[in-house]
């Protein structure tokens, strides 16, 4: 009676152990570390409000015919000085009505503007999705708040503006 009971117990234990070992190896098989999938867009970000007085664009542009010849604007939007590949393109290469236009013709909203920047700045886009480019706040193992490209970089003059640095440390000679 004892022999039969122990044998049965051994079988159960072996079955469990082998099931566990095999299930672990199956789960680990397909994963590659640090691989960012194509649709791995970060969940949280601060959408940048476009200029409130000129938004939505259709407020004015509904009533004007679009003049798509490349030129320096004289009447409106004169504060926008493009310093971002200005030889190769101008307003209508990225803007289309109330949305932004990608190179494949697809229209996107302003709160997904990272796709537009990511067209040319692909490496930085990939780094941003992984969290290595740009500022993030929140928890290191939980929810994080990302920022859109335009939160730090003015899309028309994207070079990061210099800041005034904070005070240097006191020199030992200055300590009284």
């Amino acid at each position: 009676m004892h022999g039969k009971g122990t044998a049965f117990l051994m079988m159960i234990v072996t079955a469990m152990v082998s099931f566990l070992t095999f299930s672990y190896s199956y789960v680990g098989a397909g994963e590659k570390p640090a691989e960012v999938r194509k649709d791995d867009i970060p969940k949280f970000f601060v959408p940048s409000p476009p200029s409130s007085e000129n938004f939505p664009c259709s407020k004015c542009h509904q009533f004007r015919a679009a003049d798509k010849t490349k030129r320096k604007l004289q009447e409106y939007h004169t504060t926008v000085e493009l310093k971002h590949a200005e030889e190769q393109r101008w307003c209508y290469d990225c803007h289309e009505g109330d949305k932004l236009k990608l190179q494949n013709g697809q229209l996107i909203n302003f709160d997904k503007s990272y796709y537009l920047c990511g067209q040319c700045h692909g490496i930085i886009f990939r780094d941003w999705k992984a969290g290595v480019h740009g500022k993030r706040t929140g928890s290191w193992d939980g929810d994080k708040l990302y920022r859109l490209c335009v939160n730090c970089h003015d899309p028309h003059q994207p070079k990061y503006k210099p800041l005034e640095p904070k005070q240097p440390p006191k020199k030992p000679a200055d300590i009284k």
Binding site: P33, A34, A130, G131, H133, G134, K135, W140, D141
Partner: peptide, 23 residues
């Protein structure tokens, strides 16, 4: 302000610190 500092768990293969060490 520029996001030059990155922090995370070295034992978590999906953390940003592992990503940047590997890439």
């Amino acid at each position: 302000p520029v996001g030059a500092r990155k922090f995370g768990n070295l034992l978590d293969p999906k953390s940003e610190i592992r990503y940047l060490i590997e890439n």
